[in-house]
Structures are given as C-alpha cells and as structure tokens.
C-alpha cells in the first residue's frame, strides 16, 4: 500500500508541478498583451481566451497535487483535536461517499462533455479568434483521473492510519514560508531543551 501511496503522490506532484509552470507563461503572455494593447494599440484577439485556458488548466491539474499535500482547506477546528485514528475513520467513510461519486462523474460525464466538444471542433465563444477549447474541456477528464488515483492513495492512507494511529505524510519539497519558519522554530526549541 505504501508503494501505491508514493506512486500516486509522485504522479499527482509531477502533473501538478508541470502544469504549475503555466503561471510563467500566463504572466509573460498577459504582459505581452498589455504591451501590444496599450503601447501599440493593437490588442490580440486571443489573449483573453489563452489566459483563462491557462488559469483553468493550472488549477484543475493542480487539484490532485494539492490533495496529496493536504492543501485543500478543511473546517478542522474539531478535526485537528482528534487522534489520527479517529480522523482516518471519518475520512475513510467520507472519501467513499463524498469524494468518489463526484470524481467519477468528472471522468465519465466529463468525457461525454469533452467528446461532444471534440466532435464539433468547439472554439471559444469569447472571441472570433477561434481559439480551440475541446482540449481544455478534456482537462476535466484528466483532472478527474488524477484525483481518482490520488483518492485511492488517500483511502490507503486512512486504512494505514486506522491500523497504526499515524498518518503517512507526503514527501515535501516546497513549504509555505510560515510553515518553514514555524518548523525551524520548533526544531530550535527542541534542541535547546534536550
């Protein structure tokens, strides 16, 4: 099970991070539009479409990565007081009845939605530039599949936590500044009181 959890974490992280770089393209692309629109008075017809396609792809493909790193916000003011075992029991049930139906719908109904769009070669209705959006609608399916795989890993995490009363954390490579600083502070404190 741990092997699968690691696999899913890595898979989600790989896709999440790869698509995260769209933010650079988005900054530069929108920056370019600012230049041609306000300096040269010849705005592009596609900038608006391209910016929402990048934004939408970025957050959809980052959903599973965020899930694997516990980044989706929880109303956890009770939850955080529970033992890991209790947390895991509740999570396990809710993953099965809350999480999977919706994520499965993203894949299956999303497939239907995207396939229809491919069939008539749908382009964005926002501009006459004809920017294709069928590939963008397919992102719904891709994000659904990633979430589904990550969801199985989360279920396994719950099962292990129920057995051992301990959560298996994902390997982290980036931290919010506050988490990093708080981590350093608590380590420093531990060192001073051995």
């Amino acid at each position: 099970m741990i092997g699968f959890i690691r696999f899913a974490d890595n898979l989600s992280a790989w896709f999440g991070k790869a698509f995260a770089w769209l933010i650079i393209l988005m900054s530069v692309g929108t920056g370019y539009e600012v230049f041609v629109r306000y300096v040269l008075n010849s705005p592009t017809a596609w900038a608006l479409d391209v910016s929402f396609i990048m934004y939408g792809t970025l957050f959809m493909m980052g959903g599973a990565y965020t899930l694997s790193r516990g980044g989706h916000v929880r109303g956890d003011f009770l939850y955080r007081l529970w033992k890991p075992r209790t947390q895991a029991k509740v999570d396990l049930v809710l993953y099965l009845i809350f999480f999977f139906p919706g994520v499965t719908a993203l894949i299956l109904a999303g497939w239907k939605y995207a396939a229809r769009s491919w069939q008539y070669g749908e382009v964005s209705v926002n501009s006459p530039a004809g920017v294709p959006i069928y590939q963008f609608k397919t992102v719904i399916v891709a994000a659904g599949i990633l979430l589904f795989i990550q969801g199985i890993a989360q279920v396994m995490r719950c099962i292990i936590a129920i057995r051992t009363n301990k959560w298996i954390e994902a390997e982290e490579d980036v931290f919010e500044t506050e988490d990093l600083l708080m981590e350093q502070a608590s380590r420093a404190e531990k060192d001073s009181h051995p």
């Binding site: 010849s42 705005p43 017809a45 209705v125 501009s127 006459p128 530039a129």
Partner: peptide, 24 residues
C-alpha cells in the same frame, strides 16, 4: 480601429474584419 469591442456571434467576425478587437 484597435478598440476592444463587445458583441456576439458573426457580428464579432464582422467587426474584427473592420479592425476592431472583439470580445463576446
């Protein structure tokens, strides 16, 4: 020319060909 103009449908293509940049 160069205006960002809102309209919809083929009217968007029409104004684009007249030098406007169109958003729907």
């Amino acid at each position: 020319e160069g205006f960002k103009y809102r309209t919809v449908g083929l009217a968007a293509d029409l104004f684009q060909s007249m030098g406007m940049s169109v958003a729907q």
